[in-house]
Write a protein that binds this DNA or RNA. Structure first.
Lengths: 236, 236
DNA sequence: ACCTGAACACCGTTCAAGT
DNA sequence: ACCTGAACACCGTTCAAGT
């Protein structure tokens, strides 16, 4: 019999900002935003709540750091080959974030919340930079760089939020409810809307039922890219 | 001397869901999300915290109802004349939401949070319906209605979130800091980024400094609309 | 320098008791 | 049916005290 059934937490490494943030991400992933408390975090790190404050100023910074850590890995696209077109690279960055909101359903909310803080953390520049480089590679004229990159980023953030919604939604219905079942529920709900107030939404309820989220997401990216090419064609 | 300096709160009208939600929106607008507590709300309504629970199940429903109330008025576009093109109508809906996030900086966060709940409230269908009708009027083929409307909605939600960020950001710097000053701060921060990691962001820092948010927002809308027209041309 | 953990000032929510 | 307000079970954060 071991002295205690409490896990020794890796031989009591010293606390560090990095370990704290890592544990916070794990907690967010497993028990959600409401489950991330200083007490739970302290227990997981085998320490007291007060100790965390030596490394992190408070909960706001903790959430910022967790978001930043996840976004940083999501947005880093390893160069799979320089033969990739800028379009491919943009899709890769976009899917990186899109998939991250699936693994970390709390991410979308955090992104929205943190964009409303000053000063912007490193999150926005990270995403913006990854997209912007490819916009430049696309041959978009320089005076349209900001507009084109912003539009891409905004679409991606909005759509990723929606995706997190679908993931969380399916989970909320029950542990074994898959995406298709959830979309079916939403679609049925839409069909039940008032015909006078919601004729259009009712009409597309079927398309909502059958759609594939990633495919739909990429279709939106294609749309924005087509708009960029149409309004800001390469060259002088 | 009046018997008490406490304001009589309109002769003690009976509590109602509507009055509660109205007071919640006021509280959110004036003291922000952290300021919306059941105790503060009860005081404003001249009642006890428990009374609110007779009309509203809890804080989640309160926030949902507040968001829905604001979105409903924001998204309702009065028909300024049937001569308006679908593009104009889309711009009107989009600006309605965009401006709402300026008046109600808490809105963007709430939209993101509530999209991640099941079942979707009436918020998503409301926005989706307003946009979708115009997409249909644009002559987009039926099998592309869902894709086109979703892309528009996602862009708008993402960009509105960013706008709320700028509004809240300027406020956070101080009560008399205007938008231009805030953008200047951000722009300067971007110029200070690592040249190796952020060459693109540094290069567009100037464009960020001078941009007009609404104009930029509409440029993004134009981009998505151009993409829709390019990839899903009207007709068969 | 770094950690401990009790204590403080709050929350959302419940519920017996009133009218 | 609707409201009251004390009480409960939590929070984030602080801080004297330890090592």
């Amino acid at each position: 019999m071991t002295p205690r059934s409490r896990r020794p937490e890796r031989r009591q490494e010293p606390l560090s900002r990095e370990r704290i943030v890592g544990a916070a991400v794990e907690l967010l992933d497993t028990v959600g935003e409401r489950g991330l408390t200083f007490r739970a975090l302290a227990e997981r790190l085998a320490t007291g709540p007060g100790a965390i404050y030596w490394h992190i100023t408070g909960k706001a910074e903790l959430l910022t750091a967790a978001t930043d850590a996840v976004v940083a890995t999501a947005v880093t696209v390893e160069p799979t080959g320089s033969t990739d077109s800028p379009q491919d690279a943009i899709r890769a960055v976009a899917l990186g974030l899109f998939d991250a909101t699936e693994t970390h359903p709390w991410l979308a909310t955090q992104l929205a919340t943190q964009l409303s803080r000053t000063p912007w953390g490193s999150v926005t520049p990270r995403i913006f930079e990854s997209l912007g480089r490819q916009v430049r590679a696309l041959g978009v004229p320089e005076d349209s760089w900001f507009t084109a990159s912003s539009a891409l980023m905004h679409y991606i953030l909005g759509a990723s939020g929606q995706n997190a919604a679908n993931t969380a939604g399916a989970d909320a219905l029950g542990p074994d409810v898959d995406r298709a079942e959830f979309l079916d529920t939403v679609s049925t709900a839409w069909e039940g809307l008032d015909p006078d107030d919601y004729p259009f939404t009712r009409a597309v309820a079927d398309q909502a039922r059958d759609h594939d989220d990633r495919e739909q997401f990429l279709a939106g990216i294609a749309l924005v890219l087509a708009g960029i090419t149409a309004l800001h064609p390469p060259g002088r």
